[in-house]
Structure formats: C-alpha cells, structure tokens
Design a protein around this nucleic acid. Structure first.
Length: 274
DNA sequence: GCGACAG
DNA sequence: ATCTTGTCGC
C-alpha cells in the first residue's frame, strides 16, 4: 500500500528541529480513539478449527464474510551490514494464518536518536508496505506510538501516513509516568496506565498508553517478566490498543504478529549478508 | 548542570 | 538494534 499522507515522509535529511516539528504536525493529524473498519473483538492470534467449519458452511454469504478475522500486519526491523542497512519485514496474517510476507532494505542515513526512531526506520517500513499486496486492517509496530515526547512515535508515524489503524508495542518505556509502580510483581493480564508527564506534549495525566503484562511466571520470587508498553499509533484508543495486543498474544511475551515479523526480519537480514 | 531516553 | 555461552527454571 501507498502513503495517503506523503507530506509526512520521514526524510532523514531534515534538521533535528524540522523532524520534531514534523512530529508535532503528525500528532495533530493522529486519531487516538477507535476508528476501525473491523470488529476488534474478531482479532485473533491463532486459527481455530471452528472457524474453518464456519467458512466452509453454506449458511449465508454475508455471514461468512463477516466472520473472516481482520488482517493484521506485524512490522519489525533488523540491521545488516554492520548497521548500514535497515531491513524491514512485514508479515500479514488473518486469524493467525500467514497470508503474505514482504521485506525491504534501505540504507541507514542517521544514527539512532531517542524520539526520532521513525527517521531511522520509517523509510524501510514504508518501502515494505509498498510491496505488500493485501490490505491490512491493523498494523502492530515495534516501538512506541503515543508514548512519545511529541505523541508521534514510529507506530503513529506509520499509521498516519497510511491512514491505517496502528498500535505500538515497545519493550522499554520511552517517556511518561506509570500510574502505579512497575517494580512489584504484575500478574499476567495486568495493565498499568502510562500518563503524560511534563516531557510529553499532552495535558498532564493524559493516558498515553499502558504497561501490559502479556506473560508472567507463577512464582514472583524466582523469576519475573517485564511488561510490554502498548500505545495507540493511529485510530485506536489506549484501552483498545491494549485489548488488541492482548488478543494477539499466544503464550509468549510478544504478540504473534510481532514474533512472526521478528523472525522474518532475521531471515532477510541473513539473506542480505549479516 | 543533571537526568533520561523506543530500536 | 547488535555482539554472544551457558544456565536457571517451568
């Protein structure tokens, strides 16, 4: 698919202040509330036999069409050639079934700067989306969305440019303040709101995402897992973004679309010449 | 000056 | 993100 808002292209030749201004403009365009063309409750991480039966039955065409799970695009990056090439991988799946995999390789133009990640990886991701044939309903991007200084993390950048519902899934917290301490043991399924503090361009206290415990061990003393940081990218609220990620997890810390893209990115990286 | 920082 | 062996725990 092609960008609907090309004016927001993550041009790596922009000055730092121009990049930051572009992000502020991007955040103005971003929609941090649910705006889907699909039923979020129909999103699933794994395929089920019952669905196969339904699709095969002759119980009304409209019904069978509606029962088709939304297409989710998992997006992840890897770097090759000593960090000089950015490899972006997208794995599209429907109800857990992989339906397409594409990738793109672009030269790395700038170093990693916290807050400006989309200018490092955005180009490769958009190239990969150009190569994608299917129309995804949702994108799950590695990195933050609204949990960002200017509310325009990479998930927001990609979502707005493609006008595609997107959620960001990060392994570390970029900014914001957890409503409750995350030091203690969080049981599986727990979510803690991440609020805007003075480092974020949003009213103090605005919920910009959640710390989400997608996986946890039973014994708090022996071993524990760190939570995921989920935030709206575009056309999704913080609550629904976390609901969606929860539905996309299948026993592992990371949601399935991310794991699939992660794996494919590694394969393509080796292909390019690790 | 100090602190803080996705991938 | 990436560089890397073994090792602890379920």
């Amino acid at each position: 698919m092609t960008p609907v808002r090309p004016e927001f292209a993550p041009d790596a030749s922009l000055s730092r202040s121009e990049m930051e201004q572009l992000q502020r403009d991007l955040a103005e365009t971003a929609v941090f509330e649910d705006e889907f063309d699909f039923d979020p409750a129909a999103v699933r991480a794994e395929s089920s036999d019952s669905e196969q039966v339904q699709l095969g039955q002759t119980t009304g065409q409209a019904e069978t069409v509606d029962s088709e799970p939304p297409v989710v695009a998992g997006v992840d990056q890897a770097f090759a050639a000593d960090g000089e090439k950015a490899v972006s991988a997208i794995v599209a799946s429907r109800g857990g079934e992989v339906i397409e995999r594409v990738h793109a390789v672009e030269p790395v133009e700038i170093p990693y700067i916290p807050g400006l990640l989309s200018f490092l990886e955005g180009g490769a991701i958009l190239s990969a989306f150009e190569a994608l044939s299917v129309e995804p309903d949702l994108a799950v991007v590695d990195g933050s969305g609204r949990i960002h200084f200017r509310q325009a993390g990479i998930a927001t950048h990609i979502g707005v440019m493609l006008d595609l519902p997107a959620v960001g899934v990060a392994k570390n917290l970029l900014c914001g303040r957890p409503r409750e301490s995350l030091d203690g043991y969080l049981p599986e399924g727990a979510r803690v709101a991440i609020e805007a503090d003075d480092s974020v361009t949003a009213p103090e206290g605005t919920v910009i995402g959640h710390a989400y415990q997608s996986r946890q061990y039973d014994n708090p003393e022996k071993r524990h897992v760190n939570p995921l940081y989920v935030s709206p990218g575009h056309r999704a609220s913080a609550d629904t973004a976390t609901d969606l990620v929860g539905r996309l997890c299948a026993g592992y810390k990371l949601p399935e679309p991310t794991r699939l893209a992660d794996q494919f990115a590694d394969e393509m990286k080796a292909d390019v010449g690790d």
